[in-house]
Simulated scan of single mutants.
Amino acid sequence: MSQPLGVILAGGRATRMGGGDKALLTLGEGCLLDQVTARLSPQVAGLALNANGDPARFARFGLPVLPDSVAGFPGPLAGVLAGLDWAAGQGAETVVSVAGDTPFFPCDLVPRLLCAAEGMEAPLALAATSEGRHPTFGLWPVALRDDLRAALEGGLRKVVEWTDAHGGRTALFNEAGDPFFNVNTPEDLARARAMAGGGP
């Protein structure tokens, strides 16, 4: 299997942070998106960002910005679909998704997802910890993009409902702490800054 492309999911509305782009919140010497990009880039063959609204606000990252193709903010699967459509145009077979508000995910995320999906005709796997599955961190097959589009247009919103229907597997991460800790609130942001060594 060829190296997957990567898509960073930043299409949510960040209601618990008061709106705006969580991915652009300051972390360390940059922002959340800088950290996420630095972690994912070495693991994939190319990278895009799923975000809605004016793409110019992400111009400095030099990434293709992919809006949801399904209206109404239907959740992360819409971002995955945007990534799969982009990947199809690049001739890629798979995409790995990560959340734009999760700056400390494992540096070996992609190889472990690929390992979990080994031998599958349509490679599909989600990251998991002892807390359960993390549905924004997954390996997705371009071959199923039209099936996903039909499911979304039919009202499906739950990621695991779709992955389970297609025999999706899990890649278990037993690292100390929470490698998939994400920034949802101002308190989370303060914790992330402390974890990044930037103080409060």
Rank of each mutant, 00 (worst) to 15 (best):
N182H: 15
W140R: 04
V142G: 02
V36I: 09
A165H: 03
L40Y: 12
R57M: 07
A92T: 02
A151R: 09
D146I: 01
E93H: 11
V159N: 10
D147C: 09
R191I: 15
Q90M: 05
E187Q: 14
P64V: 02
G91P: 06
P42T: 05
G199D: 10
S97K: 02
R157G: 07
V36D: 12
P103M: 09
L81T: 00
V160W: 14
E29F: 10
M120D: 12
A38W: 08
A128T: 11
L49I: 03
F173S: 11
G100V: 11
S41G: 14
V160E: 15
A176T: 15
R13W: 01
G119N: 06
E187T: 13
A88G: 08
V70Q: 00
L139M: 08
E131C: 11
L189D: 00
W86Q: 05
V160R: 14
T102W: 09
G155R: 00
A71S: 05
V36T: 07
A176E: 15
G11Y: 02
V98Y: 07
L9Y: 13
G30W: 02
P141L: 00
A117W: 08
C115Q: 15
T37Y: 13
F61D: 00
L139K: 07
A190K: 14
V160Q: 15
N50W: 13
L47H: 06
V65R: 01
W162R: 03
G198H: 12
L109R: 09
D21V: 13
D178C: 04
A190Y: 08
